Amino acid sequence: MSVQPWGEPGPGHPPGKPSVGGWQPAPAPTHQAAMRAGHSDRDRTVDVLKAAFAEGRLSVQEYEQRHEAASAAQTYGQLAALVADLPSGPMVAPPTVATPVPATFMAVPAPAPVRRPTNVLAVVSLVCSLIGFSAPAVITGHIARSEIRHRDMDGDWAAVLGLVLGYMGCAFWTLLVLFAIA
């Protein structure tokens, strides 16, 4: 049996069949098969051969013969013939039937955030301080802060702001009365 320099079997041997000396590539029948291959094309083909050898798809002799043929290949057709009987990538595993996870091991969903009610007296304290009723603002502000702590409510910011503005108003009215007396 004769092998031509570019790796194709010579006359008298069917293409792509194993011969006495080993495996011989079959020429690819496409137009692109006649295009010249480059070094990177040969390297990609060798990578496929290495993967096939590592997976046990090729024997040592087949791998060596195909590796030599890939190094000497001149066209895409010659390279394609070397890997035509090999998968081009990893085989997809058949789908397995997933066993459902028991409810015991499922994560407990986080509870939805609870919207806390706003204390009404805190809002009253803020409004009273803004319109000038300082004493009622201070009184309702203190009551609101106490209720907010005991009942876990929102509105502490309004109660504090009402208290600050209420005390400032009380100070203003006190100074005004003192200056009026003096």
Rank of each mutant, 00 (worst) to 15 (best):
P5I: 07
G38K: 06
V124C: 02
H67D: 10
H13S: 02
P5A: 12
T118S: 07
Q78L: 05
R42A: 04
A34T: 15
T30L: 13
V123E: 13
L82E: 05
V46F: 11
L121E: 02
L178K: 15
Y167W: 08
T30Y: 14
D47E: 14
H142T: 03
P87A: 05
T45L: 00
W157R: 14
L86F: 08
Q61H: 14
E147C: 03
P90W: 10
L86D: 03
F53S: 11
V123T: 08
E8M: 06
A180R: 12
I181T: 08
A98C: 01
Q24L: 11
A135T: 15
T140V: 03
M168G: 10
P136T: 03
V124M: 07
M168D: 03
G21C: 10
H67N: 14
V164M: 06
S88T: 13
P136S: 04
H39Q: 11
D154R: 08
S134E: 01
G166T: 02
Q4P: 01
P136L: 06
A137N: 09
L130Y: 02
R151W: 02
H142N: 10
P102Y: 02
S2A: 08
M35Q: 15
G89Y: 04
T96L: 15
H31S: 09
E55F: 00
S40F: 04
D41N: 01
E55R: 14
G56P: 00
R145W: 09
R145L: 15
